[in-house]
Design a protein around this nucleic acid. Structure first.
Length: 439
RNA sequence: CGGGGCAUAGCGCAGCCUGGUAGCGCACCUGUUUUGGGAACAGGGGGUCGCAGGUUCAAAUCCUGCUGCCCCGACCA
């Protein structure tokens, strides 16, 4: 991609409304633009990041046996009246009426709709287990949206819904998502800590929030440092088996958000040197809720004995529009964003120091073609901006690697390769650069 | 929803107290010189001063009402 033909409205100065670093950097890097309180447009660079995040989420959901589909953003109110949540949800639910006067709503979540879809098509326990997910925009009309897309009113959410014949099968489904979540966040370069969450009226221990530690986190969290060092299950995990043994290490240590925190237990259970008291960002939430929706909405299947029983359900959420700022909170420096390779909008920033200079143009075009042929995504700065400004902008948008092509280097047949994270700069031949960048 | 603040060019701001027909920096356009870590000079374009009323010969400025946005708290993926 050539910067001269791209749409990348970066800002030198920070818009006044942005308080936290990820919000400032997303605005400055031209990733997002605010359209109303808590409502954002995703500009091309931001859209690329969002797509990469969604793709990782998708791959790990699929790996864990979930099946992607898509439900609409607008839902008929009837379903919510049936579940009893239409009145409970209050003003956070954006309600609209269609031209026929039919009450509709912009979905804040989809339990009702998925239950309705399930019950109309699934009749037998033989069709279970089933886990369906989608990645769709949600709307929660919060009183005070803030922190950019970290807490927006309209947000993208991956929500998965599992259906099982009984509680034990539902637990296994829950563990599959548990492991999928650990893997998902790790692939984005995040250290996530599952923390037991309030499971509401259902009770039990099958509700976890996945928290990443960051100074700007919205809630205080407490955990055992040992949990931070646990290895995450690998790609070869067999999701068809019971994952209880894989999950156990993550649920055995102390980890709690402030709502669930019990100081006495924390002090008793965790040795002083391992006590972590920090702030966290919730990037995922999974829970088992039994027959909460299936019973009132009559989502039943015939069991082996031929008798209908309500299915046991769980739901599992990840917010990609929150993950983008969460990753930035975890990975930036004073110059801008530092994207982990896996979610970087482009892998390489290729800077032409002297556009119009024949040798520079040719070297850049050659590098661009070869890197792209090797599957690297390259953003070429071919603008006639001065060098300093190019460097600053490239650092701001945080591409993991930069290649700088200019007359000085080319005089000795070399280009400069720079690592965004370490700042390390190395002169090498274009061929060596291609090798170094296409491992 | 309680408390506080802000609204003037794309972004950051001054002007308002003491009314007189709008300014600075960055960004943008033209030209020249430049060019390896946010260039210099010269010229230029862009604003119904959030909206609606009112006071006045005259309102960005004073008064009233509204709207939007931000921050702290409570609430929430």
């Amino acid at each position: 991609m050539r910067l001269s033909r791209y749409f990348l409205p970066t800002l030198k100065e920070t818009p006044r409304e942005a308080e936290i670093v990820s919000h400032r950097l997303m605005l400055r890097a031209g990733m997002i633009r605010q359209e109303a309180a808590g409502i954002y447009a995703w500009l091309p660079l931001g859209k690329r990041v969002l797509d990469k995040i969604c793709q990782i989420v998708r791959e790990e959901q699929n790996r864990a046996g979930a099946i992607e589909f898509l439900m609409p953003t607008l839902q008929p109110a009837d379903l919510w009246i049936e579940s009893g949540r239409y009145d409970d949800y209050g003003q956070e639910m954006l309600r609209v009426e269609d031209r026929h006067g039919r009450p509709m709503l912009y979905g804040p979540t989809n339990e009702e709709m998925i239950t309705s879809i399930f019950r109309s098509s699934v009749r037998s326990y033989k069709d279970l287990p089933l886990n369906l997910y989608h990645i769709q925009w949600k709307m929660r009309d919060e009183v005070r949206p803030r922190f950019g897309t970290m807490r927006s009113r309209e947000f993208l959410m991956k929500d998965a819904y599992s259906f099982d014949i009984d509680k034990d099968a539902a637990r296994r489904a829950y563990y599959r998502m548990f492991v999928a979540y650990l893997r998902t966040f790790e692939r984005m370069g995040l250290k996530s800590v599952p923390m037991q969450a309030d499971s509401g009226p259902i009770g039990g221990d099958l509700s976890h929030e996945f928290i990443i530690l960051a100074d700007t986190g919205e809630s205080a969290v407490f955990c055992d440092k040992a949990l931070l060092d646990l290895p995450v299950p690998g790609e070869d995990t067999d999701f068809t088996g019971d994952l209880a043994d894989l999950v156990a290490p993550f649920t055995s240590g102390y980890a709690a958000t402030e709502e669930m925190h019990k100081e006495e237990t924390f002090l008793a259970q965790v040795p002083e040197e391992r006590r972590v008291s920090a702030r966290g960002i919730e990037v995922g939430h999974i829970f088992y809720f039994g027959t909460k929706y299936s019973a009132p909405m009559n989502a039943v299947v015939a069991g082996p004995d031929g008798q209908d029983v309500p299915v046991h359900m769980g739901s599992y959420g990840i917010g990609p529009t929150r993950l983008a700022p969460a990753i930035i909170e975890a990975s930036h420096d004073e110059n801008g964003i530092i994207w982990p390779e896996s979610v970087a909008p482009f892998h390489i920033g290729l800077i032409n120091m002297r556009p119009g200079d024949e040798a520079c143009d040719a070297a850049v075009a050659d590098l661009e073609a070869k890197l792209e042929a090797a599957g690297r995504e390259v953003l070429v700065d071919d603008t006639d901006t001065r060098g300093g400004a190019k460097f600053a902008q490239m650092d701001l948008i945080g591409l993991p690697k930069q290649v700088i092509v200019g007359p000085k280097g080319l005089a000795s047949g070399e280009v400069e390769v720079k690592d965004r994270k370490t700042g390390e700069r190395t002169m090498m031949t274009p061929e060596a650069a291609i090798n170094a960048l296409t491992d």
